[in-house]
């Protein structure tokens, strides 16, 4: 049951202090030299103002770019193997856009659909998501085409929506959200007759995700993918900034005495992703890799897990060196 309250800017500052006192680390969008990253903050004033999106995604908080999975020492005839424990602390992710927040659901499907990934889970357990509704959108955004929206509550424990009077509308959505409220209940006040919808960015859907998913199996051999991917340079920028892309590599780093195994981000767009040691590559052309990206997100994943592996944040489009606009390409596929 969602509780709807409001909080003033001054009270929000007090809430930050209460969060800090409770031993929680606060990560929020911070801006340096025009670049918006997830950084540690103590006060709302340190949070980037009027930004649209983080450049990278908040998945870093639960699925870091490099993570140790195990370490070992090697001796003649003997190996001493050590489990790795993720370095974690209670964390509040403050000011995540609703698209980003909803991305954690896809990640959970990947990391826990069968066996459970303790590294991901340990971080998620310690994490509370304070979402922030969008009052603006740009040409890359398409959350409303994939089932989200500028004020979507999915994935947030608590969602803030800026009100015209400088207050924030507060939706308390989960038990973790209630814990935050319980830290300083006096900071919250009742919200009466606030029209959340009116405050949100307006974003018309561009395509129907379910129709796309239904259509894709029939388009597998279409020339469309080669056509679209002609511009693609085959880097991993889109996957690395994506809140839902979870493909990873496992790398060994060792000397003659000891070593560690690291998990790091990987991308199906990179040529060596599927390259066998023999030289055989099941997806040797960029067109096949581009198609895999689209199909994994909008065909295979929905068939398996019931939802698209995309939140419509548009980060991939903004990060792409050659403007491979995902919304545009999906819209084109729908119309093919």
């Amino acid at each position: 049951m969602t509780t709807i309250l409001k909080i003033s800017a001054e009270s929000l500052e007090a809430l930050f202090a209460a969060l800090g006192d409770s031993g929680r680390r606060i990560l929020g969008p911070t801006e340096t030299d025009g670049r918006v990253d997830l950084g540690e903050v103590q006060t709302p004033a340190q949070v980037a103002d009027a930004h649209l999106q983080l450049t990278l995604s908040a998945k870093e908080a639960v699925f870091p770019r490099v993570e140790r999975l195990l370490s070992y020492k090697t001796m003649p005839g003997k190996v001493e193997l050590n489990d790795a424990e993720p370095d974690i602390q209670p964390t509040v992710l403050f000011g995540l856009r609703p698209c980003e927040a909803s991305g954690f659901g896809s990640l959970d499907s990947v990391f826990n659909w069968d066996s459970r990934d303790k590294f991901f889970n340990a971080r998620v357990e310690q994490m509370t998501v304070v979402g922030l509704s969008c009052t603006q959108a740009d040409d890359a955004c398409f959350c409303t085409s994939v089932g989200g929206g500028p004020g979507s509550t999915k994935g947030s424990d608590l969602l803030l929506t800026p009100l015209a009077d400088g207050h924030y509308l507060v939706e308390i959505l989960t038990a973790k959200g209630e814990e935050i409220q319980a830290l300083a209940p006096h900071l919250f006040q009742p919200a009466v007759n606030e029209d959340k919808e009116a405050l949100l960015a307006k974003l018309e859907p561009h395509f129907d995700r379910e129709a796309l998913t239904a259509k894709l199996p029939g388009l597998f051999t279409s020339e469309l993918w080669a056509e679209q991917s002609l511009r693609c340079v085959g880097c991993g920028a889109c996957a690395f900034v994506c809140p839902t892309c979870a493909c990873f590599d496992i790398q060994e780093e060792a000397d003659t005495k000891e070593g560690q195994r690291l998990r790091c981000w990987d991308s199906c767009g990179l040529r060596q992703f599927t390259l066998h040691a023999s030289g055989h590559n099941p997806r040797s052309a960029q067109a096949e890799r581009w198609r895999q990206r689209i199909y994994h997100k909008f065909s295979y994943f929905p068939q398996r897990f019931g939802e698209a592996m995309c939140v419509g944040c548009g980060k991939c489009t903004r990060a792409c060196p050659v403007d491979m606009n995902l919304k545009e390409h999906l819209t084109q596929a729908c119309g093919t």
């Binding site: 770019r65 340079v233 880097c235 991993g236 996957a239 690395f240 790091c264 981000w265 990179l270 060196p321």
Partner: peptide, 11 residues
């Protein structure tokens, strides 16, 4: 800050 996406190499 580098995330090794190889966008620099690819472009």
């Amino acid at each position: 800050r580098c995330i090794k996406c190889y966008a620099c190499r690819s472009s």
